[in-house]
Design a protein around this nucleic acid. Structure first.
Length: 670
DNA sequence: GGGTGGCACGCGC
DNA sequence: TTCCAGCGCGTGCCACCC
């Protein structure tokens, strides 16, 4: 989403602030905000005290460290790439206006009385913005029309935009429904056109496809491209040339708050303690930043001052946690809490099952009636995913907190089996995806104690050494995972695609469902190795004695993965004796049983494919043992792509099987 | 005393 | 009338172990 101040030019900010203050003051929310502010002031004071204690010798010492780091960072500057950040204008609101043209020109917001997701530009003129409660928005703008959120619509339009993005960068990174990064270096070169021309053309194409406008930023890296896309919003673009001087001039006066990762607290600390307001001042105060922040935080600040940002296509990471939380009217009713826990445990369990996840750390999140956030966690010996197990442990955690008046309960699961390269503490537990990608299903590793999980899952995406093969030095196990913001929306027949969802359940992602149907690959893709959508460059700061900060652009080598996926299809197709393929005929009819499920029935389709998969696994289990003995032949294991993280117990020395080996074995098995 | 993992919390959107 | 979300990740403290 665009920064909420966009479109608020001309707003009577004083009036807005006064109204928001009048409506909030005295409330528990307001009291909690005051408390948070007091905490922040205390932290600022602590930082000031530490700053005051620095001697000239300290400063001199840290200046040397900072100077060295600046040189190192400067050496990493890459001006060879052209990145484009595209951001749809007031996306949800614009989509709602498309489906209901009578809203055009009227102040409206998407959301409810408790919270607004997006406001159109007419509403923004009244000071209405995203993340504002609807009741305050109504006070600011009495004629405000509130439209409930309808994600299906937004997903549909998001998908249309992504088909356009695909034409410019097959490996584009979607960071949310309405934002994406594209590496347009190649297309600029191939067509001998400028980044600005690409942006212009892309925006026109998006409009033609969707009737929606978007804004774009073009720059040598993603951090700058995102800032640029915000400059001429709405329906505009800004190009920052790939030139060091241009970059340095651009960042010299750039307010630090514009940087992804520098939020309200960091901004205050940097301003109030060090007088840093612009990115350039980061460089001027580099010694104190190194003296008082952690090396990673200080390094980040310096990179910001130098206008550096991500230039490579980031590699995919596996999801780290999954959670559900619900807000309700504050209550101390323990029976109500229990029912909430039951609901949340079921939701969490269902989400985990969809993704084939087992976790061992369960975190209970509570928000008290006074808006205080508490988290309580437990790490278990076993990996769990059933709602019963989750509920059992969540109840124990909650029991230690009552009596308490709460307004929110949440459950989060982390420490997944995949995190340990598939080393499960309880090997009797299997996810379907683990089953598929482990030796149990593919015929490899059986009887050789190779852990379940990543090794085999990686093999699904390994590609031949003669292509752009990920190697030991480049990739870790997680790098092989299929990116959730996958871009394979266009160029595929509907019948060849299947929708799946990202971690939040809102990121659609077409995956190729090969005509020859490598169903194992498809289903494994669907249920395992799902990723979070790439963060928008947000970094996180935690202040204790020091801050720390790190850039966390995440993404994937989509091109490579796509090639890999395509190759999987081909390999699968060439394998003899394959089982009957599973796919959606004409995009709505199951090829196996004929049940009709339209594309929009996403969850139902997911469950349906799970059903067929489970059915198949059941059949296969009966012959599993025989197959294990038949297909484990160590002399067949040839490593084409060693993995960075080696499994000591693996007879392959932690090396992955090449993808063709995987399919050969699978086909033999059948 | 150093290394490691668990936990609580900050942060961004 | 309504009265401030939901989700995910990173960081660092601290207890525990060797």
């Amino acid at each position: 989403m665009e920064i909420y101040t966009v479109g608020m030019d001309g707003v009577d900010k004083e009036k807005v602030q006064r109204i928001v203050y009048e409506m909030s003051k005295g409330s528990k929310y307001f009291q909690n905000e005051e408390k948070k502010e007091a905490d922040m002031k205390q932290k600022i004071e602590n930082m000031r005290a530490r700053y005051a204690k620095l001697t000239a010798a300290d400063i001199s010492h840290y200046q040397k460290i900072a100077d060295k780091r600046i040189l190192e960072l400067e050496a990493t500057r890459d001006l060879s790439r052209i990145w484009l950040h595209v951001d749809m204008d007031a996306f949800y609101a614009a989509v709602e206006t498309l489906s209901n043209p009578s809203l055009k020109g009227k102040p409206m917001a998407v959301g409810g009385m408790s919270m607004i997701s997006t406001a159109n530009y007419e509403a923004r003129r009244f000071g209405v913005r995203a993340a504002m409660p609807g009741f305050i928005a109504r006070r600011l703008c009495p004629g405000l029309i509130l439209v409930p959120v309808d994600f299906k619509k937004y997903i549909h339009y998001s998908d249309l935009t992504r088909k356009v993005f695909q034409n410019y960068d097959s490996g584009f990174m979607a960071t949310s429904l309405d934002e994406a990064y594209l590496d347009i270096t190649k297309i600029c070169k191939e067509r001998a056109i400028t980044g600005g021309e690409v942006a212009e053309e892309l925006r026109t194409s998006v409009y033609e496809e969707t009737s929606l406008t978007c804004s774009a930023g073009v720059a040598p890296n993603r951090l700058l491209a995102k800032i640029c896309s915000d400059i001429n919003k709405p329906n505009g673009q800004f190009v920052l040339p790939n030139d060091r001087m241009a970059v340095m001039t651009f960042v010299s006066s750039l307010p630090i708050r514009k940087i992804g990762g520098i939020g309200k607290v960091t901004e205050h600390v940097l301003k109030d303690v060090f007088g840093i307001s612009t990115c350039e001042e980061m460089l001027l105060k580099s010694s104190v930043l190194f003296a008082l922040f952690s090396p990673s935080s200080a390094g980040f600040f310096l990179s910001v001052g130098l206008g550096l940002g991500g230039t490579n296509t980031p590699q995919a990471k596996l999801r780290k946690s999954i959670s559900n939380e619900r807000t309700f009217s504050a209550t101390a009713d323990e029976a109500f809490f229990h029912q909430k826990l039951v609901d949340l445990a079921e939701m969490l369990s269902a989400d985990m099952k969809k993704e084939g996840l087992y976790g061992r750390t369960l975190t209970l999140k509570l928000k008290t009636a006074s808006f205080e956030i508490r988290t309580r966690a437990v790490t278990l010996q076993k990996y769990i995913c059933s709602s019963e197990d989750i509920l059992k442990h969540a109840s124990k955690l909650l029991k230690a907190e009552v009596p308490v008046s709460l307004r929110l309960i949440g459950l989060r699961m982390s420490q997944f089996n995949e995190d340990k390269n598939g080393a499960q503490s309880d090997p009797t537990q299997k996810t379907i995806s683990n089953y598929l990608i482990s030796g149990d299903a593919c015929g490899k590793n059986m009887g050789d104690n190779l852990p379940l999980g990543s090794d085999a899952s990686d093999s699904l995406f390994l590609i031949d050494t003669e292509t752009d093969l990920p190697n030991e030095n480049q990739m870790t196990s997680s790098d092989y995972a299929v990116p959730v913001y996958c871009n394979q929306t266009s160029g595929l027949n509907d019948g060849d695609c299947m929708l799946s969802y990202d971690t939040a359940g809102i990121e659609p992602c077409h995956r190729p469902l090969c005509n020859e149907s490598n169903d194992e690959v498809e289903d494994a893709n669907m249920m395992g190795n799902k990723l979070k959508p790439c963060d928008t460059g947000a970094s996180h700061l935690v202040e204790t004695d020091s801050f720390s900060l790190s850039e966390q652009f995440e993404g994937s080598s989509l091109d490579r993965l796509k090639e890999s996926a395509n190759m999987s299809c081909n390999e699968a197709g060439s394998s003899a004796n394959r089982k009957e393929p599973f796919f959606w005929v004409n995009d709505y009819k199951c090829s196996l049983c004929g049940v009709e499920l339209p594309l929009s029935f996403l969850e139902e389709r997911q469950e349906h494919s799970d059903f067929h998969l489970a059915e198949r696994l059941q059949q296969e289990e009966s012959v599993d043992l025989m197959l294990k003995q038949r297909f484990i032949r160590k002399d067949h294991i040839v490593s084409h792509s060693p993995c960075k993280k080696k499994h000591k117990s693996s007879p392959t020395g932690g090396k992955h099987l090449p993808i063709d080996m995987f399919f050969v074995k699978t086909s033999q098995k059948n």
